[in-house]
Design a protein around this nucleic acid. Structure first.
Lengths: 109, 109
DNA sequence: CACTTGGATTGACAAATGTCGATACAGGCG
DNA sequence: CGCCTGTATCGACATTTGTCAATCCAAGTG
């Protein structure tokens, strides 16, 4: 009748991360960072891959950082982005067989 | 400079699914269906778990169905929802170590 | 200090989203 | 057929989101 208590907290966390990835550009961004040496990429490298204004890209990156999917580090003139693996792990766990959203009798047995 | 070609399609698909899960209520909904016997639940059961108007719940379920996360089947008077495991698998694969968003040298070695 | 460059922030605006009450529709049942 | 019950859809509204141009700030260079 009332909204679920304990699980709602996890659902909120998961939803926040899912939401951050709920845009093709942001999925691409995370994928690009992941494919970069050391899972770290600077803004300038990312900007080369997208045909869009610099401000838009910065905006999407900010959303990913705010959600905890990426972290930003300013090194001299350039901004470097890297993946927060804990966040990805959280989502992977949610979707894994036996996790909150996936029955244990999944693909793998 | 131009937007990535091949991967963009996958990113769009993934983003569509992520977006559908980008709300705590919808995460809860999928979790509830998952925990139900046979991964199938009727609207009435789900409605008991949430303190919100029936129309809102129906709206969220529609979003999940439209995105392909759930499927709806009308059986007599009641609507039954079940998880589309292919969709969950798609996202799990995206987040898995070695997947598009996760470095291979992840948690598991 | 003046200038340039990388990148973040702001402002404006259209479009999408979440929420709710009201209404419509579909399937039993009298 | 008329009525109830379960669920979907509609209409209105406030909030959020994505996009772009413009501006601002920080760091390096002359």
């Amino acid at each position: 009748m009332t909204s679920p208590d304990q699980t709602l907290l996890d659902a909120t966390t998961a939803a926040r991360l899912f939401k951050a990835l709920g845009d093709p550009i942001r999925v691409e961004l995370v994928g690009l960072v992941r494919r970069t040496e050391g899972q770290e990429a600077c803004f300038c490298d990312l900007a080369d891959q997208f045909d869009m204004p610099q401000s838009s890209l910065s905006h999407h990156l900010k959303i990913l950082v705010r959600a905890g999917v990426l972290s930003r580090e300013r090194r001299g003139t350039w901004s470097w982005y890297r993946i927060d693996n804990a966040a990805i792990d959280t989502l992977a766990a949610v979707l894994a067989p036996g996790g909150p959203l996936r029955d244990a009798s999944a693909c793998c047995g």
